[in-house]
Amino acid sequence: MSCSTAFMSVNLMSNNEISYVEFLHECEGRFYFQVLVDETDGNLRTDCFKKSSKCLTSLIQVQNQYLLLKDDNQFGIQTLTIAQQDSPNCKFRIHYYNESDKKKRKGRPVMLYVKKSNCIAVVCCRNAQEIYTKEKTALPENIDEDIDEALFYMSQLPDKTNTYMLESCLYHSNFLGFKPLKDNPCKLTLALYRKVDEVDESVEVTLLRK
């Protein structure tokens, strides 16, 4: 009989205690498990978020203009021609994560990033108002904490085409939106807004698939 390998989590109950184990593989009718315990402190070893295989590439549209990452790693919004829309600095990858705790907020956890020549620039929350980019060689496969500066909960608005809200995982009720630059109020940049009304267009983001 051939051997097969798969992974899943199950609970075993013994003496009124619950032990968390991971199914490793089956071989010739025998099942092999591993107890999920951190050897350093004896605590349960779990991952709050795991990177999935799902990833979308989109343009982010703002009032008939588009969000892009400039050479100084700052966000800008400008009009783009059809040819310019193929530039890597305006193509945002949206990578989905799976969450171990299903009782979280509305939407799916995602990370947003732009591909650069030798790294990726990941959208992160500096604080409850400001957004910045962090350069990485790759996205994390697993996140052990239940909050992260680069994770957002993305949910689609049912009554609007290609329109989404992206809530910060780190700051509850704060969503990605756009605000005027301090030194140039006529131009917008990416920021976090606290949503106070049920309908708030300032935190609605239009994604155009590429």
Rank of each mutant, 00 (worst) to 15 (best):
M1S: 14
M1R: 05
S4L: 05
F7G: 12
M8F: 06
S9W: 09
S9R: 15
V10I: 08
N11I: 12
M13F: 07
N16E: 01
N16K: 04
L24G: 00
L24F: 01
L24N: 02
Y32P: 00
F33M: 06
Q34I: 15
Q34G: 13
D38G: 06
D38A: 07
D38Q: 02
E39C: 00
T40V: 09
T40I: 15
D41T: 10
N43F: 14
L44N: 07
D47N: 11
C48W: 07
K51P: 13
S52E: 13
S53R: 08
C55N: 15
T57D: 07
T57P: 00
S58H: 12
L59N: 04
L59F: 01
I60G: 01
Q61S: 07
Q61C: 01
Q65H: 10
Y66K: 10
L67I: 06
D71H: 13
N73T: 01
F75W: 04
F75S: 08
G76A: 11
I77F: 07
Q78V: 14
Q78I: 15
T79W: 10
I82N: 11
A83L: 04
D86Q: 10
S87F: 12
S87Y: 15
S87P: 04
N89W: 11
K91I: 11
F92Q: 05
I94F: 12
Y97K: 09
N98Y: 11
E99H: 08
E99D: 15
S100D: 12
S100R: 13
K103Q: 09
K103P: 01
R105I: 01
K106C: 07
P109A: 14
V110G: 04
V110M: 08
L112I: 14
Y113K: 15
Y113N: 09
K115P: 04
S117P: 09
C119F: 15
C119T: 05
C119N: 11
C124R: 06
C125L: 07
C125Y: 04
R126H: 12
N127V: 14
Q129S: 01
K134P: 00
K134M: 06
T137G: 02
P140L: 11
E141L: 05
N142H: 06
N142F: 09
I143P: 03
D148K: 02
F152W: 05
Y153G: 05
Y153S: 04
M154F: 05
S155Q: 04
Q156D: 12
L157Q: 01
P158I: 10
D159C: 00
Y164Q: 08
M165T: 15
L166A: 08
E167G: 04
E167C: 05
C169Q: 14
C169D: 13
L170I: 03
H172G: 12
H172S: 08
N174F: 03
F175E: 03
F178D: 13
F178Q: 00
K179T: 12
K179D: 10
P180T: 08
P180S: 11
L181Y: 09
D183A: 10
D183N: 10
N184T: 05
P185C: 09
K187I: 04
L188F: 13
T189W: 05
T189A: 11
T189V: 11
T189N: 15
L190C: 13
L192W: 03
R194F: 06
V196L: 13
E198I: 14
E198Y: 07
V199E: 07
V199W: 02
D200L: 11
E201N: 15
E201C: 08
E204N: 01
V205P: 05
V205A: 00
L208D: 03
